[in-house]
Structure formats: C-alpha cells, structure tokens
Design a binder for these strands. Structure first.
Lengths: 139, 139
DNA sequence: GTGGTTGCAAAAGGTTTGCATCTGT
DNA sequence: ACAGATGCAAACCTTTTGCAACCAC
C-alpha cells in the first residue's frame, strides 16, 4: 500500500492527518529499512525542526496500534520501526550494525500451523534474523 | 556442555572462577530460558545478596565475549541472556511476554550458505522468533 | 470550539563508566 | 602480591508520563 493509501485510510477511519503523521508515514514508506527513534529524529531535522522525541514515540505507537508499522529489535538496546511487513527477514552485521533485507522465499506458514497446534498459540507474525560480519567489515 | 565443563575450560584458559561467575554459569545452565538482568538480580537475592547489577552486566559481557552466552531481545526494551545456542527458535506472547522454545527441526544452514554467497556476509548465528497470543492469554 | 496532537520538562527503566576496595590465584 | 572482579555512585541512553499550548477537523 502507498503512503497516500495509508493516509486516506486513516482519514476515512476518522483519524487526523497531522504534520508529523503525514511526514512519518511518507518517510517510512520510502525508506523500507527499519529505523530507530534517534535516527528518525535526525532525519527529520530539516523538514520538522521542532519535532520532539515524545511526539515521535507517540506517533509510532499509534501507527503500531493501527497495524501500520511494526517494531523490531536487533540487540542494539533500542527498537526499530518499519512499515507493515507481517514478517521480517533481516541480516545484521555484528560489527557495524548495518541491516539488510534477506530474500527468504521459503514459506514458514506450514511451520506456523504446526506450532500453533503444538503449543496452542495464535501466531501473528514472525522474524528471522541472521547475524554475521558484512563484506566491508571483513577487511 | 555442563556448567562444570564450562567452568573448568575457563579455568584452563587462565580465567578466574569467581563467586559471581560460578553462580551465573550454573544458574544459566540449569534454567535454559533467556533471562534479563533485572530477573537475574532478583533470582540471586538469596544466594548473592550483595550482587550488583554492574557486576552482572560485566560478567554477562565477559561470558558473551567468550562465546558462552548469547544475547537476544524480544521487543521488551531490554536484553536477555542465554547459554550458548548458535541459534534461537522462540515463541513470544504479545500479551504477557512469556517466552517458550520452539521445536524447529528444519535446517537453516543451507539458507545460510546461500545468503553468505549472495550478500558476501559471514554468518555467525541466526534467530527465528514467532509472535502471537499464548493459550492462557486467549481466554 | 473541541478533542486529538505536539513540545517541553521530568521521570523511569535498562545499561555503562569511573573509581576505590576486595579476592582468586 | 597483583591482576582481575566487585560494589557503589553517577552518568548515559532509550522510552514513558504529566501538563499546558496548539492545531486539524
């Protein structure tokens, strides 16, 4: 879904399209990688100079409740936010903390079905992360 | 490897077997689930009443550097520590944050080989987490 | 106009650092 | 005896909360 689609859906549902909300949805839609709040604050320095971390946390929490963004962590001691995948397949460099998406075509849904049955869990999402050393950091 | 094995290996390598180190390795070996520092502090209240969080963080960092424990996060805003798996397969309840191990017999190593080749990454570990609602929280 | 949104200050957790004291070998 | 381990206080970083001012509808 495009950022315009997300925003008009929110509007239809009766939610306001505030400046922060609009900018955040558009930014996250373009940069598909997961971003931390400190990173986002820095990225918005030009467009929204007065933007406060509190507003960012609250807006991200709102978008998460709406199912628009998802939270993910990579062992850095802070959360990252990303638009709307129901699953995550990432690879993280243990040295420089850079993150890339991983193509992982294999379907995990049959495993989800088995696990739901075995553990009586209702599964909503999954995350698969690989950890290693990226090409740059190998030298 | 048993906690005794781990400790004698450390001793052979010239590292001291301090009271905190010994207790921590033994405790983590018995309780296989990943524990947070606040949890560990609480668990050691009886055995090590003067144990400080700083010592715990430093000891966990040491054990991590030695490849004896691994760090993992579940989106709670804090890290968890666990003895020595080269991979993690967990399921997390989104409501009560309870964590269970997941049997996932499928071998991911062939995928690791492919990803190493495609992305020029040297992969060291991986984590697969499922998120959902546990049996208790469904009621 | 009104209720949701924002910014600011402060607080709350988890984690790290500096430093003096203690302890395992 | 000495290097490493420990405890304490303070600092640091991310995240949350309270409250007054603001803005989208």
């Amino acid at each position: 879904m495009t950022s315009q689609g997300i925003l008009s859906d929110l509007s239809t549902s009766g939610f306001r399209i505030s400046k922060v909300r609009k900018n955040l949805v558009e930014y996250l839609s373009i940069c598909q990688k997961p971003h931390s709040v400190p990173e986002l604050l820095n990225s918005f320095k030009q467009n929204l100079p007065t933007l406060n971390k509190t507003s960012l946390y609250r807006e991200l929490s709102f978008l998460k409740d709406q199912g628009i963004v998802q939270e993910i962590e990579f062992g850095e001691g802070k959360k990252r936010y990303e638009i709307n995948p129901s699953h995550h397949h990432h690879i993280v460099c243990l040295k420089c903390d850079s993150i890339e998406d991983v193509a992982f075509d294999q379907d995990l849904s049959k495993h989800e079905a088995r696990i739901e049955k075995e553990l009586k869990f209702k599964i909503k999402a999954h995350a698969l992360e690989f950890f290693g050393i990226c090409q740059t950091c190998q030298h």
